[in-house]
């Protein structure tokens, strides 16, 4: 194809997206669109998969059966989310194994929030309430993104996320109605998860690369700072309702803006964790790689069994 022809195709492609048409896997697309989508969708999938680890940590120690089935179902949903997203990603021509390899070798990133430890039961509350809450804010706009398989996966994901946040908030609510120790535990979890949750919505607009392109392709509908403001405005009253204090002395309602003003985010910490120096980066990758390698013989055995069965079927037919 000549350069002229490619330019023409690209123009038509951008116009289709501007008209709100969806792009499907076999449609012609600019290479940058394909690569950007593989990167974003796989990062998203990796986050769902690694995201199971901090919560999986508490399944066997959930305080009641009710909490245990809820947590188990939530973690199972996150596995499902990872799988929807991996398969959406594979429609662009990259194999599942290549995607795993990128995660395990450290080439691909996942959400930094999962590099923080879950040290008390209250963390299950804070994670559901805040981390899933921030994820919902990130994900809802993606239900109308331009790439069909991604948009469809996000519709399913968003439908399932709401229970995640509600079960987390309910855990916090119950703790704040409990003993002084339980109330402290809830407050302590909020103290530790508040700032990382704000960081989860991404670097400030001034620092964030490829926003304009992402807006055009509807991979982003609102800027990181707008999403963060939305999260804060939504969450502060929820904390007040259950008597918890947001750990930010500069947090103040701004009548004029109709929004909360908030304190400085420690972006150094954010970049440190992104670069691999968070409290749990090594443990998370180790757990993930151990699971993958430890499961290898099971995958091989299943394949061998399937082949044997198929052979037997053929022999019977002859």
């Amino acid at each position: 194809m000549s350069e002229e022809q490619i330019k023409n195709l690209e123009k038509q492609f951008e116009e289709r997206i501007a008209r709100d048409e969806k792009i499907e896997p076999k449609d012609w697309m600019p290479d940058k669109y394909r690569q950007t989508h593989i990167r974003q969708m796989s990062q998203h999938a990796h986050s769902e998969i690694v995201g199971m680890l901090p919560e999986g940590n508490w399944i066997s120690r959930a305080p009641t059966l009710r909490r245990k089935v809820a947590l188990l179902a939530k973690v199972q949903d996150e596995a499902g989310h990872g799988l929807y997203l991996y398969s959406a990603c594979e429609t662009l021509g990259i194999s599942r194994d290549a995607l795993y390899e990128q995660l395990h070798s450290g080439k691909a990133k996942y959400s930094s929030i999962f590099n923080y430890p879950t040290v008390t039961w209250a963390d299950m509350g804070a994670v559901g309430w805040l981390v899933d809450g921030a994820a919902i804010i990130n994900q809802v706009p993606l239900c109308s993104t331009s790439f069909g398989p991604y948009a469809r996966a996000m519709v399913r994901v968003c439908k399932e996320e709401s229970f995640h946040q509600r079960q987390g908030y309910e855990i916090m609510l119950k703790l704040t109605q409990g003993t002084p120790e339980q109330i402290d535990m809830a407050q302590d979890a909020l103290n530790r998860w508040w700032w990382p949750s704000l960081m989860m919505l991404g670097p400030t607009d001034a620092e964030s690369v490829h926003t304009e392109q992402s807006m055009k392709w509807k991979l982003k509908r609102k800027s990181n700072d707008d999403l963060r403001q939305q999260f804060i405005d939504q969450t502060v009253p929820q904390a007040e309702l259950i008597g918890l204090t947001i750990p930010d002395p500069d947090l103040k309602w701004n009548e004029e803006r109709g929004s909360y003003d908030f304190g400085e985010i420690n972006w150094d910490e954010f970049w440190q964790v992104v670069k691999g120096h968070g409290p749990m980066n090594k443990e998370r990758m180790k757990a993930r790689i151990d699971a993958w390698e430890g499961g290898e013989w099971v995958r091989d055995a299943a394949m061998a069994h399937a082949e044997k069965k198929a052979e037997r079927k053929i022999k019977q037919a002859i």
Binding site: S87, E90, S95, R96, D97, E101, H104, S105, G106, G276, N281, K282, M285, K286, I289, E293, E296, R299, D300, A302, M303
Partner: peptide, 25 residues
């Protein structure tokens, strides 16, 4: 094991892995 070691371990493993991948449905 350090992360660097882990990575190396994984990459080496990957080269000799003869696993047949499960097909897509």
């Amino acid at each position: 094991m350090s992360l660097a070691l882990l990575k190396e371990h994984y990459t080496n493993k990957n080269i000799i892995m003869s696993t047949k991948n499960w097909p897509l449905w």
